[in-house]
């Protein structure tokens, strides 16, 4: 393992035996003596190296194996096969020395005692981790500022909003100053403002501490804002490992041309002709009065831009990449061999 590699997996796999049977009472009775199972390959041979200080985004559709991978890396799940080393430890053993260096944040009900103010849970966590008072106090003060916990920690957790609770959960998960964070959907269910606050906090925390973070999220804004590197997992296997830019370049051969005509442009007066002209240029994705977004092939962009400009009276024009969500849809549909 290279000096700065803190996560290394080879052939990591998690397979489940799931009982199955046909519908109906007869099938139900038959299953008493004749049980059938199907093997579900949640994760199936993942090789991964993560260096200290990286922030890596795990992408994939539901059931792709992202969370299962995080759970194996954190020690919650025992792998069915493969090698795994995290911070020099075998996670499934959950050594105390290992657990003190990591944190897994998932969902909004994890560390905090539901019926007590978060401040009481922070005290309890201090004892669980055996933190020295001065260290705990300094870390808590810092997290208090970064997460803006003013007025949140002295009322019962159950009375906090989802966003407030998530901020308190993050503080609780980071009190022991973990050097490796596993964040499973940290902004799930939060409103846009809370999502942004949590996202900014993770960014600042990672920047300021140099902590390593592995993150899953269905919100592309999280991934774009936080992750220099993304790993695409689909059907339990690793489809892509690299930067978002590389991923977009490999799966997306499309560009979006956003154009706005002058309000009194003659072409706007002849809608039938405009529609014909635009359809010849590319696929119209959006239209709103004098504004249009047209999708074109990346390789043809020069010719298409020339055609658009020839329509006359263009007052604004930009060339954009496809939205990340669309890029990912393409990535999930693209065979692994074509992505790597």
């Amino acid at each position: 393992m290279a000096d700065d590699t803190i996560i290394r997996t080879r052939g990591l796999a998690k397979h489940y035996e799931v009982p199955i049977r046909e519908a109906g009472l007869l099938a139900s009775v038959r299953s008493i003596t004749k049980r059938q199972h199907r093997t579900v390959r949640a994760v199936d041979g993942v090789d991964l190296d993560v260096a200290r200080g990286e922030v890596v985004g795990f992408l994939g559709p539901n059931g792709a194996g992202k969370t299962t991978t995080l759970k194996m890396l954190s020690g919650l799940l025992h792998p069915s096969a493969g090698e795994i080393s995290v911070l020099g430890h075998e996670p499934r053993r959950r050594d105390r020395a290992f657990l003190r260096r990591i944190s897994l944040v998932m969902g909004q009900r994890q560390q905090l005692v539901w019926d007590l103010p978060a401040a009481d849970s922070f005290l309890m966590i201090r004892s669980f981790y055996g933190l020295r008072h001065a260290d705990w106090r300094a870390q808590l003060d810092e997290l208090h500022d970064l997460l803006d916990l003013e007025g949140l920690t002295d009322k019962p957790v159950r009375q906090l909003s989802l966003g407030e609770r998530m901020r308190c959960e993050l503080a609780a998960g980071l009190l022991h100053r973990p050097e490796l964070l596993f964040l499973d959907e940290p902004t799930l269910g939060l409103d846009v403002q809370s999502q942004r606050r949590v996202r900014e906090f993770i960014r600042r925390y990672a920047d300021r501490t140099g902590a390593t973070a592995l993150l899953t999220s269905h919100y592309m804004a999280d991934i774009e804002a936080l992750c220099e590197r993304v790993v695409v997992i689909h059907h339990g296997t690793l489809h892509f490992d690299g930067s978002l830019r590389d991923l977009a370049a490999r799966v997306s051969d499309r560009k979006l041309l956003a154009i706005r005509f002058a309000a009194d442009a003659p072409i706007l007066a002849d809608r039938a002709r405009l529609d014909r002209e635009l359809a010849a240029i590319g696929e119209v994705r959006e239209s709103d009065g004098a504004e249009y977004v047209i999708e074109v092939a990346r390789a043809e962009i020069h010719d298409r831009v020339t055609q658009l400009m020839a329509l006359g009276d263009v007052v604004d024009f930009t060339v954009e990449d496809e939205p990340l969500e669309r890029v990912l849809e393409r990535a999930f549909d693209t065979p692994a061999a074509e992505l790597s």
């Binding site: 200290r52 003190r100 933190l131 020295r132 870390q139 810092e142 022991h176 100053r177 501490t209 902590a211």
Partner: peptide, 11 residues
Amino acid sequence: SALGSPEPFDY
């Protein structure tokens, strides 16, 4: 910063 060290606390 106070959060500046990636090293864990002295347990």
